[in-house]
Structures are given as C-alpha cells and as structure tokens.
Design a protein around this nucleic acid. Structure first.
Length: 565
RNA sequence: CGGGGCGUGGCGCAGCCUGGUAGCGCACUCGCUUGGGGUGCGAGUGGUCGCCCGUUCAAAUCGGGUCGCCCCGACCA
C-alpha cells in the first residue's frame, strides 16, 4: 500500500484521556479511534492487525478439528432463562425488546446458543465429539470500561465450545485447546502464562486463564519460582512467613481505645503478624466470623467460595450478634460459624477479648477456640508456595484467554442429550474456550514498544516492511523505491511505502510510531553508491545492502524469521 | 454504584479565582524555502467555550442542574 492512499491519521500528541501505553500508542499511530466509553473503531492499520491475529486463531483452531460457524449476536431471552443466567446476570447484559415486546438480549457469550444448537442436532454418541467456534462480536455493558482496547463494551472474541460423551473425552478436548492456545500466543509473539483460575459464573470445576504479564493488566497471578505453581491471586494458595515461636501464657491485656490492629500493635509493641483480625460478615445462612492474621488481608473471593455471597456486617449488627463493639472481637466463645485462616493454626496470637478495651494475649487455635480452617488471605509477594515451600512472586497480567470445563451445566437445563452405545440418554459434556484478539494486540503493544512507538512482533505487524523514500523530489529515489515496492508486491511481501511529500524526519518518526518491524530506507547519499539501508525497528541497527540485492535480502530475512517461529 | 478529575477550533493547552466582544503551540490551506530524525518565513481557514436554566446592563468566567469522558475502588461468563 502507498501511505498517501491509506488512512493513517497519526498524532503528534496523545489525547489527554488515554492512559495505558497500548491505548496511547494505538491512538497516536492511527490504529484506533474511540467512539464512546468502551467503544472503539479499528482503522485500516488496526483492522489489518486483527486480521492477522484472526488468521492465526483460525489456523490453530482448525488444526485441532474445530469448525468455524457463526451465531447471532441478538438472542431471545428464553434460552437464557432456561439456564437461569437471564436472572443471575445483572446490568452487564444489554437487554431489549423486539417490536412485538419479546425480551431479547445481546450476546455476552454463547454457551446458551451453542448448547441450544447442540440440543436440537446432536442425537447419538456417533455425532460426538464436536468442537464449534466463531470469531464474533460480544457485548457487555461493563461497569467501567478502561485502558483503551483492553476492556471494552463491544469486542470481538474467538469462542469455541466442545461437546463430548464423557469427562475423559472432555479432558482430551481441553488438552487440545491448551496446546492450541500455547501455539497461538507463542505465534503472536507474547510472553504469557497459563494459570489456575476461578470458574466464577461460568460454572464447572476446572478452568485456566492465559495471562500476558504487563503493568497495564487488571489481574494478578502468584507464581512459584521453584515448582512452577501458578494461579490467579483470586485463588492462589500461599503460606505467609511464619512468626517466631512464642510461649506466652493466656492473659488479658487492657487496651483502652485501641481498636485497629495497627493501634493495638503499636500499643503492645508487637508486629501485626502476632494479631488475629476478626471480621464479621453476613451470609445467606447467617453471620460468619472470618479470622485472618493481623498483617494479612481477607480475600473476599476465597471466603465467598466457602460461605457463598456475603456482605460486611454493620457496626450495630456486630454488637447485636457478638455482644461487643467492633475492635474488640475475637474468635473465642461464639456460637456462630467461624472460618479461620490456616496461618493462625499454629502459634500464639493476640485477639480481641470480646470485652470493651481488652485483648487476649497468648491465644492458641483449638485450645482457645475452634474454627473451620481454610486459606482465606490474599497471597502476597514473598509468601511461600503451599506446594513446595518456594518463594511466591506476584505479577500483574492481562487476561488474553481462558478455558473452562463446563460439564453439564448448560447441557442439562437445555436438554442437550445423546443416546450412548447402550441406548441410554446422557447429557453432553461441555467445555468452553475464549480468546480476545484485541487483547492480544494490546498486550503485544504493552510488551513490545519503546519511547518512539510500537514494535510489532512480525506475526502481528500490519505490513512486513515499510519503504521510506526520503526525498520524493529526487527522481532517482522515487524510481528505486518504486521498483522495489513493485517487486515486493510480486513476491507476496506486504509493503507500506511512505510516498508522502514529507520530510525525512516526519517519515522516520511516523515509521517508528507505527512499528512495522523492518524499514527500508532510500536516501540520496546511499543511492549514489548503489546502496539501500535496511533497518530493524527493534534494535535500530541497520545494514547497507546493494540496490539489486534488497529483494533477496528481505526474502531471506522473512524466511529466517518464519523458520524460527 | 462510591470517590476524584476534566469538558474552550482536529490534537495538546492558557484564559475562569477578580464577569467587559476568545488566545497560544501543533495540525490544516496557499506561496516561497528546505530536503537523512516532526525545516524556516509569510499569508490564511477554522471555535454558538459540552448542554439547559438562573444571576447580571453584560457570562468561557458566578450559581444550580444535566450530559459526556478519564482515573481509583466495587463489579467483571
């Protein structure tokens, strides 16, 4: 393509409301524009990148036997009502009525519709397995769209769904997807991790997320440098460093007006790790006391996994249920359910005495109180791995893909069943698997840029090379550049030629911003010696090549890179 | 949904406190100039100051409302 004929609106300055690096660079380099909060337009360059990502997705999905289909974005409510999600999902679902008043919604994911299709068409074990996928628009009325293209209300997703006769067969498809996802993200040039994750509202028992490390990410994962354990911090198990052993006898300590862990810790001159923090919450089954170590943070999601939905108790409720005001409560002597963190199991601690202005020192688990023991604290940098005792490292990541074993969560309510070899009716065993192509693009920019702009991995770059004829007023320059441009085109190499009447500086700046990995520079001085400069966007190193050998050089370069990936 | 910030030519900003006929840089158009890292000079185009209501002789500026956008948090299949 000729730059002069292509719509590439580059910006010298970043719009003030862009914060994430990928957002700023994709805006400045003319890849995207924003329509409204969480709604983006992909301009020619951006759309080319998406096309390249989607091509990789199709190749790898097809390679594991998945079949591409296309489902509607607009769904009738009934299907969603049958699985119960019509009511479970709140404002995040766009809902509307058609002209006859029928409830409809816009698809935020397609488990229901895929399963509906399977329920009508799959009859026999002979019809299975099936893996269907689509690359299609999803709509979610996000509470807070953010970070440019990273969290939007409308986005394209590759979603696939597997249908199997058994758990074992599902395991196989799950494994196929795991491998395909590894290949996809590697081919897209991303640094990524596969971690254990919380299935959440998707249901099912097992799920994993694929995460691209980046400070712009919204999630955190815990990684063990020793055994390789890796999990989303939402469920990552960890053991906080253990306290020095203490032989304190149980004693009551007067702690006037000292309520918070910090206050009591200062007052008693003991590190906060020697304290128990008791937090009263109200669950559907009534009040629950959650107890964590003073230096730890209660992880709401971990607690919710044990006791279900809950909310913090209000001050009057604390007094009413426990008989003491907040600040002096402890786990001793209550009849309500108590969930305590594993880190409190051994050793002596200080806790509230359930009596205003008093704390107990020397409290020991099981001797002084009993509880259900769980890991309910938030994993932190430096905690120890539950599996091997290695040191955990916390990393910020962008979620670029996820895979779920769904089981029969959707097939049962939608009656997606088959007859097995014995003529027995059984529900189809399902899995679902998602990838956000736009997040791949954004993560690639987050992971590959410098102060001058984007540095695309070759597999995602909108063009293979950019040709820079520096002086369009010099006929020799234009002639030589055009000859190369034509021959590249013939060879099937995608080239962008900056044929604008701009000065060299402008072309260099824009080329760096846009981030095509290889620049071919035609300057008068070099041309006089029959030379052309080939520059690598990432290393900024350049080679001078004879005019007649450029084509071969580039072919060779692209072939080598292809081989390596 | 809670907290914070911001809406002034396409982009980045000043002006607002202390009301008095809207300004700077970039971009854009034309001419000359320059031609390997956003060239220099000159002449131009373009804005009902987000919107509504109010105060005032007079509102970008003061007051109220409303809409939009961004950030932090909650939420997030």
């Amino acid at each position: 393509m000729r730059f002069s004929k292509m719509f590439i609106p580059t910006l010298r300055e970043a719009p003030a409301d862009a914060e994430a690096i990928s957002h700023i660079l994709m805006l400045r380099a003319g890849y995207v524009r924003q329509l409204a909060a969480g709604l983006y337009m992909l301009l020619p360059l951006g759309w080319r990148v998406m096309a390249k990502i989607n091509a990789v997705l199709r190749e790898e999905m097809d390679a594991i036997g998945a079949q591409e289909i296309s489902l509607p974005v607009l769904h009738p409510a009934e299907v969603w009502q049958q699985t119960g999600r019509w009511d479970v999902i709140g404002d995040e679902m766009f809902r509307l009525k058609d002209r006859s008043g029928r409830d409809m919604c816009l698809g935020m994911t397609h488990e229901e519709i895929m399963t509906w299709l399977a329920s009508r068409e799959i009859r026999s074990y002979r019809d299975l397995p099936q893996v269907w996928y689509q690359i299609q628009t999803k709509l979610r009325d996000e509470a807070r769209p953010k970070s440019g293209i990273l969290r939007t209300r409308e986005f394209i997703m590759k979603d696939s769904y597997s249908f199997d006769v058994s758990e074992e067969a599902l395991d196989k498809n799950y494994e196929f997807h795991t491998k395909a996802y590894h290949r996809i993200f590697s081919r897209c040039g991303l640094k990524f991790l596969m971690v254990e994750s919380d299935p959440g509202m998707m249901g099912g028992a097992v799920s994993h997320e694929f995460m691209a490390p980046s400070p712009a990410g919204e999630d955190e994962v815990a990684l063990c440098g020793n055994c390789g354990y890796s999990a989303n911090v939402e469920l990552a198990l960890s053991a906080p460093p253990v306290n020095e052993k203490q032989e304190w006898p149980l004693e009551e300590v007067h702690t006037p007006e000292k309520r918070t862990v910090q206050e009591v810790s200062n007052f008693m001159k003991l590190p906060s790790s020697y304290f128990m923090k008791s937090i009263l919450v109200i669950s559907k089954e009534g009040p629950v006391l959650a107890v964590v170590r003073g230096d730890q943070e209660l992880h709401e999601k971990k607690l919710a996994a044990i006791i279900g939905d809950h909310r913090p108790a209000q001050r009057p409720e604390v007094k009413e249920i426990l008989g003491v005001e907040a600040g002096f409560i402890g786990p001793m002597g209550h009849r309500i359910r108590i969930i305590a963190d594993n880190s409190l199991r051994d050793g002596a601690f200080v806790s509230g005495a359930n009596k205003p202005h008093y704390h107990f020192k020397g409290v020991r688990a099981e001797r002084d109180f009993s509880a259900e023991w769980h890991d309910i604290h938030k994993a932190r940098e430096g905690d120890l791995c539950e599996k091997c005792g290695g040191v955990l490292h916390i990393e910020r990541v962008i979620e670029i893909g996820n895979i779920f074993k769904l089981g029969t969560k959707y097939s049962v309510p939608l009656n997606a069943v088959f007859l097995d070899e014995n003529g027995q009716e059984k529900p189809i065993i399902m899995g679902s698997y998602g990838i956000g192509p736009a997040r791949i693009a954004a993560a690639a920019v987050e992971q590959n840029h410098d102060r001058d702009g984007i540095i695309w991995p070759r597999s995602l770059a909108p063009f293979d090379v950019e040709i820079l004829p520096l002086n369009m007023n010099d006929p020799g320059t234009v002639e030589a550049a055009t000859v190369l441009y034509d021959s590249l085109k013939e060879s099937g190499i995608k080239a962008l030629m900056d044929d604008r009447e701009e000065r060299a500086g402008v072309k260099f700046k824009d080329a760096d911003l846009i981030g095509i990995p290889t620049h071919i520079i035609f300057g008068e001085r070099n041309l006089k010696e029959g030379l052309v400069e080939i520059k690598d966007r990432k290393s900024k190193e350049s080679a001078k090549v004879k005019t007649g050998e450029v084509l071969a050089y580039i072919k060779d370069l692209l072939a080598t890179v292809k081989q390596m990936s």
